[in-house]
């Protein structure tokens, strides 16, 4: 929790700036939108976080979002599959993509960066070819299935704000993941593998299996997220749906306290990180800044956040060293 203070500070600052200078920031509609987007991106960011914990990286998240998201209406509408068949198929397919990454990384010992970079190109290409590069959508049908992502719950006492249903899977996921990392043997092992894979292997940790599991979880969550995204927006273009989503996911995880060196993660921090990025995107529009500046602003905030984090880490390390000198000598 302690390492999430930094990102929490940034989050609150960004919110305050947006609330003070942007007129419509505190409206129920805007906050509802923010909650929805934060929830959806949190799912991707948590997946990215699991992989980053192992010291790896997954660049294919956006393309998996696209492939899973596009395949869902494509199977439902064009091929008229039953929703009961489509959802498991898409989720299983996404998990298999992760398994494919994991096997290449642990058995063939390819670098995660390369494997998932190839994945980024591969799944985007498949999605475009499969659909003939045509926009895919629900065409006003399948309201029942889409309700998974579109339902909004009224909260007594709040008139304009209604809670999006996507908060439910995200909360469940966050709790499970936090418990997994702190309370289970495999969670501890995953952190140990990220810290020092070799030492973990010498300690009898099945490191290859855990790393593979991390990639399976990441792609599964990307697929699940992709499905929720398409339920939310209704239709999408295979050529641009999910573009750069892996970068939002990775940025949220890093802002949230995951070290790219591995071995460190905070589920709470990752979600705050995802929320910060969404607030930033909204704030740019509300503050009347040119929307072309979006990436530049997000890049700058990320850079400042990461640099501050590094400086604080170094300062603490120095203090620790002084303390340890005092204790040892």
């Amino acid at each position: 929790m302690k390492k999430s203070f930094g990102i929490l500070g940034i989050f609150i600052t960004v919110c305050l700036v947006a609330a003070i200078f942007g007129e419509n920031f505190l409206t129920g509609y805007n906050l509802m939108n923010l909650t929805q987007r934060t929830a959806l991106f949190s799912i991707l960011a948590l997946g990215a976080g699991i992989v980053i914990v192992t010291g790896g990286i997954d660049l294919s998240i956006g393309s998996v979002v696209c492939l899973a998201g596009i395949t869902t209406p494509w199977l439902l509408v064009e091929h008229e599959w039953s929703p009961w068949l489509v959802l498991p198929t898409v989720l299983l397919g996404s998990a298999l993509i992760g398994l494919f990454h994991g096997v290449l990384i642990t058995k063939l010992r390819l670098q995660p960066f390369l494997v998932t970079l190839c994945g980024l190109l591969l799944y985007r290409g498949i999605a475009r070819w499969m659909t003939g590069d045509q926009s895919q959508g629900f065409q006003g049908e399948f309201e029942g299935v889409r309700a998974i992502a579109l339902t909004k719950f009224t909260i007594p006492g709040l008139e304009n704000y209604r809670l999006p249903s996507t908060v439910i899977p995200v909360t469940a996921l966050a709790v499970v993941l936090a418990l997994f990392l702190s309370r289970t043997v495999w969670g501890r092992w995953l952190l140990a593998t990220g810290r020092n894979e070799s030492a973990a292997r010498y300690s009898g940790v099945p490191t290859a299996r855990l790393i593979t599991l991390a990639y399976v979880a990441c792609s599964f969550l990307a697929g699940f997220g992709g499905m929720l995204f398409i339920f939310d927006i209704g239709s999408a273009q295979p050529s641009d749906f999910g573009n750069f989503y892996e970068l939002y996911a990775i940025a949220a995880a890093v802002l949230g306290g995951c070290s790219l060196r591995g071995g460190e993660a905070s589920v709470f921090g990752i979600i705050v990180g995802a929320a910060t990025l969404q607030v930033l995107r909204t704030a740019i529009i509300l503050l009347g800044l040119s929307s072309q500046l979006e990436f530049a602003v997000i890049g700058s905030v990320l850079l400042v956040g990461v640099a501050a984090d590094e400086l604080i880490r170094r300062f603490n390390a120095q203090r620790l060293e002084r303390a340890s000198h005092a204790a040892i000598h």
């Binding site: 810290r195 030492a199 973990a200």
Partner: peptide, 8 residues
């Protein structure tokens, strides 16, 4: 390299 988790 193989024994300790130095940062833990």
């Amino acid at each position: 390299r193989h024994g300790c988790f130095l940062e833990d």
